[in-house]
């Protein structure tokens, strides 16, 4: 099977005249059709800029310094701007962390969803409006025929994130990029939104690139996980293997630093791992990496 998304040795950063400051130092990973792939890392590890590079929304002064991003066989980095625009929202869609800033506050959510059908599917506004109601229903917004007339500020954070998901999935993209989609939400709402993304994408066969700092969320969502540190992918493995048997020092430190639910009841209160005492020299962390050989991807769902 050929991968849907194939990121090869991606380098990106700032360029000051002759010398460049690299933020991503050669990141490579692949996502199969229908697969949910997680990128996990702390702030500044480069996980978010990776997703922006894929969807072509990198902001100046950041720029691509090297590498290739193949999507459905085409190198996105070499694609003309026009073609990239028609791909974006259509074949590759994105859900952001803060739905309030990603939605237009002056348009009803119905119109914003309908716009996707008009833009990418050439539907008339009347047809698109009908599709928008269906789309809202599909993300389980109660009374969708009334809610399409709402403005973003009239909705709760959880509902707004559902609207974002409805917009993102409107054109049946092959790849959904979800960048910390539930970080701004309460835990019980987060659980519902995660479930929604998982079920909708599984039903439609949409591949997901899921970005989060939360190891728990990653474990819930993803079949395979890449751990990023300081602009490098330091470890990649199937979710279960990664959590049960972390091979890289940094991953081990990260998992040890996490208070685990129920562990105090079993083992008493154990001191959390201080990653700095665990790893003597952080600068050497990116020299080593562990990328697990790809096993059969079939249905190893992490749910």
């Amino acid at each position: 099977m050929t991968p849907l998304l194939d990121v090869r040795n991606l380098e990106l950063g700032l360029r000051h005249g002759a010398h460049a400051h690299r933020i991503l130092k050669g990141v490579s990973f692949q996502i199969m059709p229908g697969e949910t792939y997680g990128l996990v890392g702390e702030s500044g590890s480069g996980k978010s800029v990776t997703s922006l590079a894929i969807i072509g929304l990198l902001k100046k002064p950041l720029q691509i310094l090297g590498g290739e991003i193949f999507f459905e066989g085409r190198n996105l980095l070499a694609l003309p701007r026009r073609e990239m625009r028609s791909l974006r929202g259509n074949r590759i869609a994105m859900v952001f962390q803060e739905p309030m800033s990603a939605l237009n506050p002056l348009q009803t959510v119905g119109r914003q969803i309908a716009e996707m059908y008009v833009q990418h599917r050439g539907k008339s506004w009347a047809q698109a409006q009908k599709k928008a109601v269906e789309a809202l229903a599909s993300v389980r917004v109660p009374t969708p025929e009334r809610r399409v007339h709402d403005y973003p500020h009239q909705m709760s954070g959880g509902l707004r994130q559902r609207v974002m998901i409805a917009m993102a999935l409107a054109c049946d993209p092959a790849l959904l990029i979800a960048d910390e989609p539930t970080t701004a939400l309460d835990v019980t709402v987060q659980a519902e939104v995660l479930k929604l993304i998982r079920e909708l994408c599984a039903a439609r066969g949409t591949a997901v690139l899921f970005i989060s700092h939360d190891l728990g969320v990653i474990a819930t969502m993803c079949q395979r996980v890449g751990v990023m540190y300081a602009g490098c992918l330091v470890e990649e493995n199937a979710t279960r293997e990664l959590f049960v048997d972390p091979r890289h020092e940094y991953t081990r430190g990260l998992l040890g630093a996490l208070p685990k639910l129920g562990s105090r009841g079993l083992h008493g209160r154990q001191r959390l791992v201080d990653i700095d005492s665990f790893i003597a020299d952080r600068s050497r962390l990116t020299d080593t990496r562990f990328i697990a050989p790809r096993g059969p991807v079939s249905g190893e769902a992490g749910s």
Partner: peptide
């Protein structure tokens, strides 16, 4: 944490995305 009674407490604990619970490692709450 081991014997929550109120439905809201139970729901709160059940919805935490905890790697241990998700992957069936450690103790089920």
């Amino acid at each position: 944490f081991s014997d929550p009674v109120h439905p809201y407490t139970r729901r709160l604990i059940a919805t935490i995305p905890d790697p241990g619970a998700v992957l069936g490692l450690g103790r089920e709450v």
